[in-house]
């Protein structure tokens, strides 16, 4: 019950934020400082734990507003891809990083003279990605600038909520089973602090692979004793292959795709995802499908 009330509260706050969100970043005066988000934050995995820690099952696209292109991309994805040297040390992009083993450090950069916040910085434990959220009203880079794993972020206070807009991502993923997010994707985030709990509401928009924005929430709890360890990554030859081999499944040949719906007794259609599968109403359709199948 408490969880339900909490979720409703978060959703309502996010709703207000959505309605009030600015269209572009601009410099804010010293009065707009919001709440202090600084500190060491320990991740809480009560939400989506099976996907986030053990990792998602192959072929589980349930609840993702993906299109046919994303589905084919994920169907073709072979985990052996990650054995290629150039793929081994990729960090999670900013829109996925909070979902992994995400011990989080947040700190602010302050202009000495004005005491205005110039930027917020984040550091996350897995692969140690660091990120800057600019608060000084600077524009996003031009379209020909390089893209990065963390993208380019600007932030703005809306009351005590920090709203962040990120562009210039590299091609990334929204689920660790090959479901892609393109480099044209953008991210809008809302950081909300409730005492010792930090909630992040994130919106991913991707004209290439998503039919609707993909929204999720992630939580942390303040943990002053947290010390994040370094995360060095050393590339090694895991499989000796001829140059140029890219592991992937040809269309129609990925035999692992059926394992997820079979394991959880779901209609195969549901596992294929799509915007429809995000909404609570889809559970009614699921029940109808299962009833029709005599399950």
């Amino acid at each position: 019950m408490r969880k339900s009330v909490y979720r409703t509260t978060v959703a309502c706050v996010a709703l207000m934020a959505a309605m009030a969100a600015p269209r572009q970043a601009s410099a804010q005066g010293p009065q707009a400082r919001g709440v202090d988000l600084s500190g060491e934050w320990a991740p809480r995995f009560h939400e989506d734990q099976p996907e986030r820690i053990p990792g998602p099952e192959i072929g589980d696209y349930l609840g993702l507003p993906i299109n046919a292109a994303a589905r084919l991309h994920a169907d073709s994805w072979d985990a052996s891809l990650l054995t290629l040297p150039e793929h081994q040390c990729k960090p999670h992009p900013a829109d996925y990083s909070p979902r992994g083993p995400a011990n989080l450090r947040l700190w602010k950069e302050i202009d000495t003279a004005s005491q205005n916040i110039i930027a917020w910085h984040t550091h996350i434990s897995w692969q140690a990605p660091e990120r800057t959220i600019w608060m000084d009203g600077r524009p996003h880079p031009p379209d020909y600038a390089a893209h990065t794993w963390q993208g380019f972020s600007t932030g703005r206070w809306e009351g005590d909520m920090l709203t962040v807009t990120t562009t210039h991502f590299k091609l990334g993923w929204i689920r660790r089973n090959g479901v892609p997010r393109s480099d044209a994707g953008t991210l809008v985030e809302h950081f909300l602090r409730h005492g010792n709990v930090l909630t992040l509401v994130s919106w991913i928009n991707d004209p290439v692979y998503l039919d609707e924005p993909f929204v999720r929430t992630t939580n942390w709890e303040l943990d002053p004793h947290q010390n994040i360890a370094p995360y060095p990554c050393q590339i090694v030859v895991e499989v000796d292959r001829p140059q140029g081999v890219v592991p992937h499944h040809l269309p129609g040949t990925n035999n692992f795709l059926n394992e997820f719906p079979v394991k959880y007794n779901l209609p195969a259609e549901a596992a294929r995802g799509g915007a429809e599968t995000m909404y609570p109403e889809y559970q009614l359709k699921l029940q109808a499908m299962q009833k029709a199948a005599g399950k």
């Binding site: 959505a18 953008t186 929204v215 995000m278």
Partner: peptide, 21 residues
């Protein structure tokens, strides 16, 4: 969980266009 978590929020927010999204 996705249906419960993402779906729950989206159910409230998805029908209203997020200006930036």
């Amino acid at each position: 969980c996705v249906l419960a978590a993402a779906g729950g929020v989206v159910a409230m927010l998805g029908l209203l266009a997020h200006p930036q999204a």
